[in-house]
Design a protein around this nucleic acid. Structure first.
Lengths: 334, 334
DNA sequence: GTGAAAGCGCTAACAG
DNA sequence: CTGTTAGCGCTTTCAC
């Protein structure tokens, strides 16, 4: 009747065994004999008993939950990662809970603390800005894997896409369509992921024998507004460009908006490519090409890595070298 | 040194008092005398002791955390609500943790269970599909407040926008601009929020003396694809319309996409209004008008309500009757 | 006011 | 294999 008020003692009494035995069938059934096990199982069945996780955790030191710190940027990229983490965890007895850093002052710090207080067995950190040393200080020796933060100063496990490759492929895609005047809006320059994407852009141009024009690189911040300003800036200065590579889709949206305000058609007059492959890209801005990061693979890898860390089997830092996927072609230079 | 390994006994010894006293200064300092209190505080200061929440919760029955079940992490509407809930909670000693239902099979059920297992003191449920009775069965007598689910069969607290008004205002906005042939893509017809928005649409038309044309109402599902299909369907059947009211922004995106495929300009030829005011609305589809739900107010109300429920002061079911905000005007009928 | 003692519900040795 | 005995770290009577 009353919800969580049935305890292990109740069912022990009901099954006429000791509560240690009940605990055993709960955690390691193979340790218990047929007869007693049946009795316990029966009692369990008719009482819908829910073990008290607090007590269990206090006694065992394990909470069977892993904390995920999200930035909730609301991009499908992060959502996809989270989905595959959840999928990976579902095979196990571990359950995810989330801490959202986005709205707190010291965003991730607060979220990580809260999660740690809840005695999570491990933490998966998605994106964010916290520095490696700060994170280290916070978590001590508890298992942590960092996702989507390439190049962070962090001696633990990192699962990340190859952002250099992402930038390279995006630019390469444009070049393959005959473009040579390719403008670029960077992401947040303080963010290694962003820097690497830009490096990939530079390298792709160089490899194609195209000179990098610094004036065609606009320093953005991963937000849409930067895309708008970038276009305004280029246009105002009379720069020519037939294609734009935006560091992410949100920025690309901004670029597209500014372009359409000037009655410049995409992709007929200017080709546009972004990174992330948000749903909105397909729906709202079909002429926008986007590159998808291998989110699912990264999520899986993250789940696997944190479980290994918890289990104690060491797991090295690594960068996920997945293939990038280009969703749609841009138009050829004409 | 070692992270969480300092216990209340340690600092009791350090301060030369009993651990009961330490517990008191931790929870109710006024119960302890000056001298002893100072000693404890001093010990506390030099050891950076972190009380073990599991133990505390096991002993007290309270976890000082409230669980938030989210559905659509990533849409600005829900994000705004979450932000203001967090803000409201920050004034207190309660901390939020999140359960994301989106990717689970029985989405919310699993999330709610996980949260309940973690012994949260209360639950805030955002959106979703779970039925009132099912939810009731799940949570028993624990405090729950449901947000953004108008008309749910639920005797507890509900914080919701007035979806009828939302639909009414959106339609009214179009009518005010001189439109009379106003098409409508509904949300998920199984969802009360959606039904009410559609009712608002009907009422606004009636009030303006405009007859409702059933063929101009397309049954959608809150997803973008429905918007595309709606337009195709109307166009194929040769229906005339100078404006479209989409049940939410995502649907509006779809409408806009389909329209632009047919070279129908928005808003010059067809005006378009949605609900939610997603960031992308402003960025990608500027000619798209959107109505914002009073998310911040709803979040605040939710935080307040759950705290009241936990504290025991009763709190009645209520619908938030905030003003809707229209971000941008549509173009006049010409 | 403050300390001693008794648990919260469960797991984990330890004997048998 | 199974029951007994201790706790996990904290709160909370209950006397003093």
């Amino acid at each position: 009747m009353k919800e969580g008020r049935i305890t292990i003692d109740d069912i022990a009494r009901l099954a006429k065994v000791s509560k240690a035995t009940v605990s055993r069938v709960l955690n390691n059934p193979s340790l218990v004999n047929g007869a007693k096990k049946e009795a316990v199982l029966a009692a369990l069945g008719q009482t819908k008993f829910q073990p008290n996780l607090m007590a269990r955790s206090l006694a065992s030191g394990q909470s069977m939950t892993i904390g995920i710190v999200t930035q909730n940027i609301g991009t499908s990229f992060y959502d996809d990662i989270i989905r595959s983490i959840i999928l990976g965890l579902r095979q196990t007895n571990y359950k995810p809970i989330f801490g959202d850093g986005l709205f707190e002052q010291n965003a991730e710090v607060a979220a990580v603390k809260t999660l740690l207080d809840r005695k999570v067995d491990g933490i998966i950190l998605l994106g964010g800005d916290i520095s490696g040393p700060d994170l280290q200080k916070l978590v001590g020796d508890r298992p942590v894997v960092v996702v989507a933060r390439e190049g962070m100063q962090w001696q633990g496990t990192i699962i990340s896409a190859d952002n250099f490759q992402l930038g390279y492929e995006a630019t390469r895609c444009l070049i393959n369509h005959g473009h040579t005047e390719i403008a670029h809006v960077t992401g947040n320059p303080l963010h290694q992921d962003s820097v690497r994407r830009t490096n990939g852009y530079r390298q792709a141009l160089s490899d194609a024998g195209i000179e990098v024009d610094p004036e065609l690189i606009y320093q953005g911040n991963f937000y849409g507004q930067a895309g708008v300003l970038a276009v305004e800036s280029w246009l105002m200065r009379g720069k020519n460009f037939s294609a734009v590579f935006a560091a992410n889709d949100l920025t690309a949206f901004g670029v597209r908006l500014a372009l359409s305000r000037r009655n410049i058609r995409v992709p007929d007059e200017v080709s546009l490519i972004g990174i992330d492959d948000q749903v909105e890209s397909a729906l709202v801005a079909p002429p926008l090409t986007s590159i998808r990061q291998p989110a699912a693979e990264m999520g899986q890898a993250a789940a696997k890595a944190i479980l290994e860390l918890i289990a104690g089997s060491s797991s090295e830092s690594r960068v996920y070298q997945g293939k990038v996927i280009i969703r749609e072609s841009v138009s050829a230079k004409r």
